[in-house]
Amino acid sequence: MLRHAVQRLMLAVPVMFGVLLVGFLLMQVVPTDPAIVRAGPNASAEVIAQIRTDLGLDEPLYVQFALYLWRLAQGDLGVSIINNVPVAHELASTIGPTLELMFASLIWSIPLGIAMGTVGAYLRGSLIDRIVMAFSVAGVSVPVFFLGLVLIWFVGFQWQWLPFTGREGPLWTWQGLRAVILPAITLGGVFVGPVARMTRTAVLDVLGADHVRTARAKGLSERLVVTRHALRNAMVPVVTLIGLQIGFLLGGAVVTETVFSWPGVGRLAVGAILSSDFPMAQGTIIVLSMGFILVNLTVDLLYGVLDPRVRAS
């Protein structure tokens, strides 16, 4: 187990390094001078020169990269061009809402998807199975913003049931919970389909396996056969595939945040790119990439826990 973990970690480290390098080079190609940005609009030439020395902008590129990593390690991601706020500060206040949205989306969509996929596989070829499959194909084909706009139009605007702009507090408050419902239905809605589809395939594979036949032969109830023997073994590929779909979820989150004005990292990233706020864009992209790499790593490790064969190899 430890060896497996170390191995995965060894793979993740160069990738993270690569992300930081690309993030650093991004700032080299864009037409802004970080010293002028930090100094603010009314700074004198001397102040700018001083900041230039402080930041090491006159040093060779590799020294600058080392300094950049050093500042990053201290949580210094630069300053926004637009409003002079530290990038790290903005990021710290947007990561929470993004995680909140993802949590609220996954908490209902993964169980529903797994349930739908299992029922579909068990009743293979039936009308219910066909409905599950049709639903999941539609789910992977629908644009996230379409779902969001339809919900805003009906639930938010016509019927006035739920709020649809912004976040109104933490999840555990009534206001906060109400505000997250529509975004969470939107983002989770495009996730149910893929999960149902993957679960169906995995359960179908397992239902045909020898140990399931044995379980039936020894007279276990169908419920036990499906839950204990089939579903449990099918969970290994499903967990991996759900992990791989986190990228898909991230893409959906960026769009959902934009549609619902949800104050998350994705919306911050899009806004920064559209307003050419390069330090902010760089910071958000680095944080999103790192988060994604960490999730992948976690899924890999979880895979090792669920499937002992992975540990051995």
């Binding site: 864009v30 990233a269 790119i273």
Partner: peptide, 22 residues
């Protein structure tokens, strides 16, 4: 290929739009 797969398409989209402009 593994390294390229460690990033979702949306991140490539954000990064490339940040560098070359939308």
């Amino acid at each position: 290929a593994d390294i390229m797969l460690s990033f979702p398409a949306i991140l490539f989209g954000l990064a490339i739009a940040a560098i070359f402009g939308p």
